[in-house]
Simulated assay, not measured.
Amino acid sequence: MTITGIERLDEQTQLDKIEGNVALLCHSASVDRNFKHSVEILNSFIGNRLKKIFGPQHGFVTDVQDNMIETKDFIHPYFKIPVHSLYGETRIPTDEMLEGIDTLVVDLQDVGTRVYTYISTLTLAMEKCAQLGVKVVVLDRPNPVGGLNIEGTILEEKFKSFVGRFEMPQRHAMTMGEVGHFAKKNFNIDVAYDVIEMKHWQRSMNWHDCKLPWLNPSPNLPTPEGALTFVGTVLFEGTKLSEGRGTTRSLEVVGHPSIEPFSFLEKINKNIGPIEGAIFRPCTFHPMFQKHAGTTCGGVHIHVTNWNTFKSWTASQLLCREFYAHLGDEFQWQDAAYEYEYDKLAIDLINGTEKVKHWVESNGSLDDLQRIESTGMDLYFSRRDNALLYC
């Protein structure tokens, strides 16, 4: 049974790492195994030294559905302390927000994917804290998709954004605490930094192995399996297909109003063959909001059958290639602004390169995709090795 960082604050040697006046960056999934929130837990140990709360994208209470929907600062009606949004007028803590703070404690449930913005929020906060002499302490949590399997293209310099700040692949196989070490050691963030490590977490573990409760880390990830499919299906945010937002199984289903699912699956089976570790099931779904709201879509539901062997990123790129070929002129790349980037396509920001989009459009082979994926991977492995905390 994995013991998270927040659950180790009853150890004095760990609590001593949290010095002076404190701010806590957290969200609704910041709970212990008994569902007690980290604000309550930290407050019980340090009392009035807890001065401020910060919330990431989707808000401190994790109620905001879509990207680029901002949250505001407020005074918490129960805890009676300020809650500052790091997804509002700013995504970087201001001098005023950190005034009087000695330690920023970070307790966020990440999902192990580069584009998931909590690691960007962490590293932007680390850079600001370095300027102001504020210590950063991460209360570590499991990477729900494990710490071994690595997938996806390495982010290229020209596609750096809030959904990708450093040269890392889509599925990076690090915990939040390790990502902080990765950024500090490899990208010169000179901040006082510490991690309250987990006990009994190993790199080979998936979420179910940890025996921890699953709370949505963001509104559209209702299941642990969704965190694994998200590694790949997030790419469909870069298209005008529905990735299931507005349904009960968002980011596990993908489709379009013009798709007849059974005939489409026949093409998938012919062109791709069986997907190791998962089954594509033909399905229809009816989004209640976001893309194709109020319209029935046909497509596939991705059912994970083996967490250790399923390569979500590869499977979703192959699926995107099949949607592109099947829909023809009805297939469109998303051309709206994406995470405050207005001059680049969302698909290229998500993939961290434009090479994968060109691969889809040219009906490229699996071998071609794997060659694209391997570019820069050796450097990433060497940088990551220096940041790992767990075996």
Rank of each mutant, 00 (worst) to 15 (best):
K355I: 11
G47P: 03
R281S: 08
F381R: 14
G255A: 04
C283Y: 02
F182D: 01
D209Q: 09
S30T: 12
V356R: 05
F331M: 06
P142N: 05
K72A: 14
L265S: 05
N43L: 12
T113F: 09
A278T: 13
V179S: 00
T71M: 05
G376W: 00
D95Q: 14
F54K: 07
D140N: 09
E341Q: 13
G133E: 04
L251F: 15
V136L: 06
V191P: 06
K270W: 06
T103E: 09
H172K: 06
G55E: 10
K158P: 10
L349V: 13
I81N: 01
R321E: 03
I259P: 01
I46P: 04
L104Y: 13
T284K: 10
P274N: 09
C391L: 00
N386V: 12
S312D: 07
F45M: 03
Y87T: 14
L98A: 07
I69R: 07
Y78L: 12
G277I: 15
I6M: 14
G5L: 00
G147S: 09
H84K: 10
A125S: 15
H256T: 04
T2S: 13
P257D: 06
E96R: 10
R8A: 11
L132K: 11
W201C: 10
K36Q: 14
V231M: 14
L235G: 04
R384Y: 03
F187D: 00
K270P: 01
F45K: 14
P82H: 00
V31N: 04
P56W: 11
P169E: 12
I53E: 00
I154Y: 06
V61Y: 12
C283D: 05
Q332R: 14
N269D: 03
L212N: 05
H256N: 02
F162S: 01
H76V: 10
G177W: 12
P169H: 09
Y324I: 05
Y193K: 11
H208N: 15
G299Y: 02
A337I: 09
W307T: 12
K128T: 02
P93T: 11
A293T: 00
R165W: 06
N67Q: 05
F60N: 03
L104H: 10
D102Y: 04
I259S: 01
M198G: 09
L318C: 12
V115Y: 08
I92H: 03
T113C: 11
I302D: 03
G232T: 01
H301K: 01
G152H: 02
L228S: 01
V300T: 02
K135A: 13
R91E: 08
G294M: 02
V179I: 15
T2G: 03
M1G: 08
